[in-house]
Simulated assay, not measured.
Amino acid sequence: MNAAAAPATPPGLGMVIIGRNEGERLRRCLESSQAVGERRVYVDSGSTDGSVQLAIEAGAQVVRLDMSQPFTAARARNAGLRELRRQCPGVTLVQFIDGDCELLPQWLGSAERFLTQHPDIVAVAGRLRERFPDKSVFNRLCDIEWNTPVGEARSFGGIVMVRVEAMDGAGGFREDLIAGEEPELCVRLRARGGRLWRLDEDMAWHDANMLRLSQWWRRTLRSGHAFAEGASLHGQPPERHFAGETRRALLWGAALPLAILALACVTPFAWLLLLAYPLQWLRIGLRLARSHAPIPWLQGGFLLLGRFPEALGALKFYRGRLVGRRSGLIEYK
Protein backbone atom coordinates (compact mmCIF):
# COMPACT_ATOMS: atom_id res chain seq x y z
CA MET A 1 0.00 0.00 0.00
CA ASN A 2 1.09 3.57 -0.55
CA ALA A 3 -0.42 7.00 -0.22
CA ALA A 4 -0.35 8.03 -3.88
CA ALA A 5 -2.45 10.93 -5.07
CA ALA A 6 -6.12 10.22 -4.45
CA PRO A 7 -9.00 11.16 -6.76
CA ALA A 8 -10.94 14.36 -6.12
CA THR A 9 -13.35 14.15 -3.21
CA PRO A 10 -17.01 15.24 -2.97
CA PRO A 11 -17.53 18.94 -2.11
CA GLY A 12 -19.42 18.03 1.06
CA LEU A 13 -16.34 16.39 2.58
CA GLY A 14 -13.75 18.24 4.63
CA MET A 15 -10.84 17.22 6.82
CA VAL A 16 -9.48 18.17 10.24
CA ILE A 17 -5.84 17.34 10.97
CA ILE A 18 -4.42 17.82 14.45
CA GLY A 19 -0.79 17.74 15.47
CA ARG A 20 2.02 18.79 17.75
CA ASN A 21 5.66 18.49 16.65
CA GLU A 22 5.00 15.62 14.25
CA GLY A 23 7.69 16.70 11.76
CA GLU A 24 8.05 14.34 8.79
CA ARG A 25 4.96 12.43 9.87
CA LEU A 26 2.89 15.58 9.38
CA ARG A 27 4.39 16.10 5.92
CA ARG A 28 3.24 12.62 4.88
CA CYS A 29 -0.18 13.26 6.40
CA LEU A 30 -0.61 16.50 4.45
CA GLU A 31 0.57 14.92 1.21
CA SER A 32 -1.90 12.06 1.61
CA SER A 33 -4.80 14.49 2.02
CA GLN A 34 -4.18 16.73 -0.98
CA ALA A 35 -7.40 15.56 -2.69
CA VAL A 36 -9.41 17.56 -0.14
CA GLY A 37 -7.63 20.74 -1.22
CA GLU A 38 -8.81 23.87 0.57
CA ARG A 39 -11.24 21.87 2.67
CA ARG A 40 -8.43 20.91 5.04
CA VAL A 41 -7.85 22.48 8.42
CA TYR A 42 -4.69 21.84 10.38
CA VAL A 43 -4.88 22.58 14.11
CA ASP A 44 -1.56 23.04 15.88
CA SER A 45 -1.05 22.61 19.61
CA GLY A 46 2.05 24.66 20.27
CA SER A 47 4.50 23.00 17.85
CA THR A 48 8.08 24.29 17.74
CA ASP A 49 9.29 22.24 14.76
CA GLY A 50 7.91 24.26 11.87
CA SER A 51 4.67 22.30 11.60
CA VAL A 52 2.56 25.43 11.07
CA GLN A 53 4.66 26.62 8.13
CA LEU A 54 4.61 23.12 6.69
CA ALA A 55 0.80 23.09 6.75
CA ILE A 56 0.57 26.56 5.21
CA GLU A 57 2.89 25.56 2.38
CA ALA A 58 0.74 22.46 1.79
CA GLY A 59 -2.31 24.68 1.28
CA ALA A 60 -4.18 23.80 4.47
CA GLN A 61 -6.09 26.30 6.59
CA VAL A 62 -4.27 26.66 9.92
CA VAL A 63 -5.59 27.16 13.43
CA ARG A 64 -3.14 27.81 16.26
CA LEU A 65 -4.62 26.89 19.62
CA ASP A 66 -4.41 29.48 22.40
CA MET A 67 -1.45 28.34 24.49
CA SER A 68 -2.92 29.86 27.66
CA GLN A 69 -5.42 26.99 27.82
CA PRO A 70 -4.54 23.29 28.32
CA PHE A 71 -4.03 21.35 25.11
CA THR A 72 -6.18 18.30 24.40
CA ALA A 73 -6.85 16.41 21.17
CA ALA A 74 -10.58 16.95 21.77
CA ARG A 75 -10.14 20.73 21.95
CA ALA A 76 -8.06 20.68 18.76
CA ARG A 77 -10.63 18.63 16.83
CA ASN A 78 -13.50 20.85 17.89
CA ALA A 79 -11.56 23.97 16.91
CA GLY A 80 -10.72 22.42 13.56
CA LEU A 81 -14.33 21.54 12.83
CA ARG A 82 -15.48 25.06 13.72
CA GLU A 83 -12.95 26.55 11.32
CA LEU A 84 -13.81 24.04 8.61
CA ARG A 85 -17.48 24.98 8.83
CA ARG A 86 -16.60 28.67 8.77
CA GLN A 87 -14.50 28.24 5.65
CA CYS A 88 -16.82 25.69 3.97
CA PRO A 89 -20.41 26.16 5.22
CA GLY A 90 -21.70 23.33 3.02
CA VAL A 91 -19.53 20.61 4.52
CA THR A 92 -21.59 17.59 5.67
CA LEU A 93 -18.86 15.02 6.37
CA VAL A 94 -15.59 15.47 8.22
CA GLN A 95 -12.60 13.17 8.18
CA PHE A 96 -10.61 13.48 11.39
CA ILE A 97 -6.99 12.43 11.28
CA ASP A 98 -3.96 12.84 13.53
CA GLY A 99 -0.74 14.32 12.20
CA ASP A 100 1.15 11.06 12.74
CA CYS A 101 -1.10 9.23 10.27
CA GLU A 102 -1.24 8.96 6.49
CA LEU A 103 -4.48 8.30 4.61
CA LEU A 104 -4.62 5.57 1.98
CA PRO A 105 -5.67 6.81 -1.49
CA GLN A 106 -8.98 4.97 -1.76
CA TRP A 107 -10.23 5.61 1.75
CA LEU A 108 -12.04 8.94 1.45
CA GLY A 109 -14.08 7.81 -1.55
CA SER A 110 -14.97 4.45 0.00
CA ALA A 111 -16.01 5.96 3.33
CA GLU A 112 -18.06 8.73 1.70
CA ARG A 113 -19.89 6.21 -0.52
CA PHE A 114 -20.65 3.99 2.45
CA LEU A 115 -22.15 6.85 4.46
CA THR A 116 -24.16 7.99 1.44
CA GLN A 117 -25.58 4.50 1.01
CA HIS A 118 -26.27 4.01 4.73
CA PRO A 119 -28.01 7.12 6.14
CA ASP A 120 -28.44 5.45 9.55
CA ILE A 121 -24.65 5.21 10.01
CA VAL A 122 -23.15 8.37 11.52
CA ALA A 123 -19.46 7.44 11.54
CA VAL A 124 -17.22 5.02 9.68
CA ALA A 125 -13.64 3.88 10.17
CA GLY A 126 -11.41 1.29 8.53
CA ARG A 127 -8.25 -0.66 9.27
CA LEU A 128 -5.50 1.48 10.73
CA ARG A 129 -2.08 -0.08 10.26
CA GLU A 130 1.18 0.66 12.00
CA ARG A 131 3.79 1.92 9.51
CA PHE A 132 6.77 0.25 11.19
CA PRO A 133 5.39 -2.72 13.19
CA ASP A 134 8.74 -4.53 13.19
CA LYS A 135 10.69 -1.58 14.54
CA SER A 136 9.77 -2.44 18.14
CA VAL A 137 7.51 -4.75 20.09
CA PHE A 138 5.55 -1.67 21.17
CA ASN A 139 4.80 -0.70 17.57
CA ARG A 140 3.75 -4.29 16.92
CA LEU A 141 1.34 -4.17 19.85
CA CYS A 142 -0.13 -0.95 18.44
CA ASP A 143 -0.72 -2.64 15.08
CA ILE A 144 -2.59 -5.45 16.82
CA GLU A 145 -4.60 -2.92 18.84
CA TRP A 146 -5.72 -1.14 15.66
CA ASN A 147 -7.17 -4.38 14.23
CA THR A 148 -10.70 -4.00 15.60
CA PRO A 149 -13.68 -6.18 14.54
CA VAL A 150 -15.37 -5.45 11.21
CA GLY A 151 -19.04 -4.43 11.20
CA GLU A 152 -21.11 -2.43 13.65
CA ALA A 153 -18.91 -0.94 16.35
CA ARG A 154 -19.35 0.61 19.77
CA SER A 155 -16.56 3.13 19.34
CA PHE A 156 -13.94 4.55 17.01
CA GLY A 157 -10.51 6.14 17.38
CA GLY A 158 -9.14 9.46 16.24
CA ILE A 159 -9.07 8.49 12.54
CA VAL A 160 -12.71 8.45 11.44
CA MET A 161 -15.22 10.01 9.05
CA VAL A 162 -18.27 11.47 10.82
CA ARG A 163 -21.43 13.25 9.77
CA VAL A 164 -21.21 16.90 10.82
CA GLU A 165 -24.90 16.88 11.76
CA ALA A 166 -24.28 14.01 14.18
CA MET A 167 -21.31 15.85 15.70
CA ASP A 168 -23.52 18.89 16.24
CA GLY A 169 -26.27 16.83 17.82
CA ALA A 170 -23.90 15.13 20.25
CA GLY A 171 -22.15 18.39 21.15
CA GLY A 172 -18.73 17.47 19.75
CA PHE A 173 -15.79 16.16 21.75
CA ARG A 174 -15.48 16.85 25.47
CA GLU A 175 -12.57 19.28 25.50
CA ASP A 176 -11.58 18.61 29.11
CA LEU A 177 -10.69 14.94 28.49
CA ILE A 178 -6.94 14.39 28.10
CA ALA A 179 -7.56 10.92 26.59
CA GLY A 180 -10.43 8.63 25.70
CA GLU A 181 -12.39 11.46 24.09
CA GLU A 182 -13.33 9.39 21.02
CA PRO A 183 -15.09 6.50 22.81
CA GLU A 184 -16.77 9.01 25.14
CA LEU A 185 -18.20 10.82 22.11
CA CYS A 186 -19.33 7.45 20.75
CA VAL A 187 -21.39 6.85 23.89
CA ARG A 188 -23.30 10.07 23.20
CA LEU A 189 -23.64 9.38 19.47
CA ARG A 190 -25.12 5.94 20.14
CA ALA A 191 -27.39 7.34 22.86
CA ARG A 192 -28.94 9.52 20.15
CA GLY A 193 -29.55 6.48 17.95
CA GLY A 194 -26.46 6.85 15.79
CA ARG A 195 -24.75 3.72 14.49
CA LEU A 196 -21.00 3.32 14.00
CA TRP A 197 -19.31 1.05 11.48
CA ARG A 198 -15.89 -0.42 10.85
CA LEU A 199 -15.25 -1.31 7.19
CA ASP A 200 -13.06 -4.22 6.13
CA GLU A 201 -10.79 -1.84 4.25
CA ASP A 202 -7.41 -0.27 4.87
CA MET A 203 -7.80 3.34 5.99
CA ALA A 204 -4.44 4.81 6.99
CA TRP A 205 -0.90 4.28 8.20
CA HIS A 206 -0.04 5.24 11.77
CA ASP A 207 3.46 5.97 13.01
CA ALA A 208 3.54 5.42 16.75
CA ASN A 209 7.34 5.70 16.84
CA MET A 210 7.20 3.93 20.20
CA LEU A 211 10.67 2.49 20.70
CA ARG A 212 11.19 2.51 24.47
CA LEU A 213 9.51 0.85 27.42
CA SER A 214 9.09 4.26 29.04
CA GLN A 215 6.97 5.43 26.07
CA TRP A 216 4.77 2.36 26.28
CA TRP A 217 4.44 2.87 30.05
CA ARG A 218 3.28 6.49 29.70
CA ARG A 219 0.84 5.62 26.90
CA THR A 220 -0.63 2.84 29.02
CA LEU A 221 -0.80 5.11 32.05
CA ARG A 222 -2.77 7.56 29.91
CA SER A 223 -5.16 4.72 29.00
CA GLY A 224 -5.74 4.01 32.69
CA HIS A 225 -6.57 7.65 33.27
CA ALA A 226 -9.02 7.52 30.34
CA PHE A 227 -10.63 4.35 31.72
CA ALA A 228 -11.26 5.89 35.14
CA GLU A 229 -12.53 9.19 33.78
CA GLY A 230 -14.73 7.48 31.20
CA ALA A 231 -16.21 5.21 33.87
CA SER A 232 -16.91 8.22 36.08
CA LEU A 233 -18.96 9.74 33.24
CA HIS A 234 -20.79 6.73 31.79
CA GLY A 235 -19.85 3.74 33.94
CA GLN A 236 -23.32 3.06 35.27
CA PRO A 237 -25.71 0.54 33.62
CA PRO A 238 -26.67 0.03 30.93
CA GLU A 239 -23.61 1.58 29.24
CA ARG A 240 -20.93 0.56 31.79
CA HIS A 241 -18.43 2.57 29.76
CA PHE A 242 -14.86 1.55 30.73
CA ALA A 243 -16.17 0.10 34.01
CA GLY A 244 -14.64 -3.33 33.39
CA GLU A 245 -11.33 -1.90 32.20
CA THR A 246 -11.06 0.30 35.30
CA ARG A 247 -11.96 -2.55 37.62
CA ARG A 248 -9.34 -4.90 36.09
CA ALA A 249 -6.63 -2.24 36.25
CA LEU A 250 -7.28 -1.46 39.90
CA LEU A 251 -7.57 -5.15 40.87
CA TRP A 252 -4.37 -6.42 39.23
CA GLY A 253 -2.33 -3.22 39.32
CA ALA A 254 -3.15 -1.90 42.80
CA ALA A 255 -5.46 -3.92 45.05
CA LEU A 256 -3.74 -7.31 44.73
CA PRO A 257 -0.16 -6.00 45.15
CA LEU A 258 -1.20 -3.96 48.19
CA ALA A 259 -3.06 -6.95 49.66
CA ILE A 260 0.03 -9.15 49.24
CA LEU A 261 2.24 -6.58 50.95
CA ALA A 262 -0.22 -6.17 53.82
CA LEU A 263 -0.66 -9.92 54.36
CA ALA A 264 3.11 -10.48 54.16
CA CYS A 265 3.38 -8.59 57.45
CA VAL A 266 1.27 -11.35 58.99
CA THR A 267 2.29 -14.52 57.18
CA PRO A 268 5.06 -15.43 54.70
CA PHE A 269 2.53 -17.53 52.80
CA ALA A 270 1.11 -14.27 51.45
CA TRP A 271 3.82 -14.30 48.78
CA LEU A 272 2.13 -17.36 47.27
CA LEU A 273 -0.53 -14.97 46.03
CA LEU A 274 2.03 -13.77 43.48
CA LEU A 275 1.28 -17.00 41.61
CA ALA A 276 -1.96 -15.33 40.54
CA TYR A 277 0.03 -13.31 37.99
CA PRO A 278 1.57 -16.19 35.99
CA LEU A 279 -1.79 -17.97 36.15
CA GLN A 280 -3.51 -14.88 34.79
CA TRP A 281 -0.88 -14.58 32.05
CA LEU A 282 -1.55 -18.22 31.13
CA ARG A 283 -5.30 -17.58 30.98
CA ILE A 284 -4.89 -14.47 28.80
CA GLY A 285 -2.36 -16.16 26.53
CA LEU A 286 -4.60 -19.18 25.96
CA ARG A 287 -7.57 -16.93 25.17
CA LEU A 288 -5.52 -14.96 22.65
CA ALA A 289 -4.11 -18.14 21.10
CA ARG A 290 -7.61 -19.52 20.60
CA SER A 291 -8.53 -16.29 18.80
CA HIS A 292 -5.47 -16.72 16.52
CA ALA A 293 -3.71 -13.60 17.80
CA PRO A 294 -0.30 -13.26 16.08
CA ILE A 295 1.83 -13.09 19.25
CA PRO A 296 -0.52 -14.32 22.01
CA TRP A 297 1.97 -14.91 24.81
CA LEU A 298 3.92 -11.70 24.31
CA GLN A 299 0.70 -9.71 23.92
CA GLY A 300 -0.76 -11.39 26.98
CA GLY A 301 2.33 -10.55 29.00
CA PHE A 302 2.12 -6.87 28.10
CA LEU A 303 -1.64 -6.79 28.74
CA LEU A 304 -0.99 -8.08 32.25
CA LEU A 305 2.03 -5.84 32.84
CA GLY A 306 -0.06 -2.92 31.59
CA ARG A 307 -2.40 -3.24 34.57
CA PHE A 308 0.23 -1.48 36.71
CA PRO A 309 0.52 1.75 34.69
CA GLU A 310 -3.24 1.61 34.04
CA ALA A 311 -3.84 1.51 37.79
CA LEU A 312 -1.46 4.43 38.31
CA GLY A 313 -3.32 6.38 35.62
CA ALA A 314 -6.67 5.66 37.23
CA LEU A 315 -5.35 6.68 40.65
CA LYS A 316 -3.94 9.84 39.10
CA PHE A 317 -7.44 10.71 37.89
CA TYR A 318 -9.03 9.97 41.29
CA ARG A 319 -6.40 12.02 43.11
CA GLY A 320 -6.97 14.95 40.78
CA ARG A 321 -10.71 14.78 41.26
CA LEU A 322 -10.27 14.62 45.04
CA VAL A 323 -8.16 17.78 45.16
CA GLY A 324 -10.16 19.52 42.42
CA ARG A 325 -7.32 19.66 39.89
CA ARG A 326 -7.50 18.22 36.40
CA SER A 327 -4.57 16.25 35.00
CA GLY A 328 -2.39 17.74 32.30
CA LEU A 329 -1.70 16.13 28.95
CA ILE A 330 0.13 12.78 29.19
CA GLU A 331 2.41 12.51 26.13
CA TYR A 332 4.55 9.53 25.18
CA LYS A 333 6.42 10.96 22.17
Score class of each variant (00 low, 15 high):
Met1Thr: 13
Asp49Phe: 00
Gly90Thr: 07
Glu175Trp: 06
Glu165Trp: 07
Gly157Asp: 11
Arg154Pro: 04
Ala289Trp: 10
Ala208Arg: 14
Ala4His: 11
Gly109His: 05
Pro105Glu: 07
Arg86Met: 14
Gln53Asp: 15
Val266Ser: 08
Gly14Arg: 02
Leu315Gly: 06
Arg198Cys: 02
Val122Pro: 00
Ser33Arg: 00
Gln34Asp: 12
Arg319Cys: 09
Tyr318His: 11
Met167Phe: 11
Gly90Gln: 13
Ile56Gly: 07
Arg240Trp: 12
Arg240Thr: 12
Arg219Leu: 13
Tyr332Gly: 04
Arg307Asn: 14
Ala79Trp: 04
Ala249Ser: 08
Gly306Asp: 00
Ser68Ile: 02
Pro70Ile: 01
Phe71Tyr: 13
Arg321Phe: 06
Leu282Tyr: 11
Glu38Leu: 13
Ala264Tyr: 09
Arg154Ile: 03
Val323Lys: 08
Leu275Tyr: 12
Gly320Asp: 08
Arg319His: 14
Gly320Met: 14
Val124Ala: 03
Trp281His: 14
Met203Ser: 06
Leu221Glu: 09
Leu196His: 03
Asp134Ser: 12
Glu331Asp: 15
Arg240Ser: 14
Asp49Met: 01
Ile144Leu: 09
Glu24Phe: 00
Arg20Met: 01
Ala228Gly: 04
Glu145Ser: 13
Pro238Met: 04
Ala289Arg: 14
Ala74Glu: 07
Arg248His: 09
Leu329Ser: 09
Trp107Met: 02
Ala153Gln: 15
Leu303Ala: 11
Ala3Tyr: 08
Phe96Tyr: 13
Cys101Thr: 09
Glu31Ala: 12
Trp271His: 14
Ile56Glu: 14
Ala276Gly: 12
Ile284Gln: 05
Glu57Ser: 12
Ile18Trp: 02
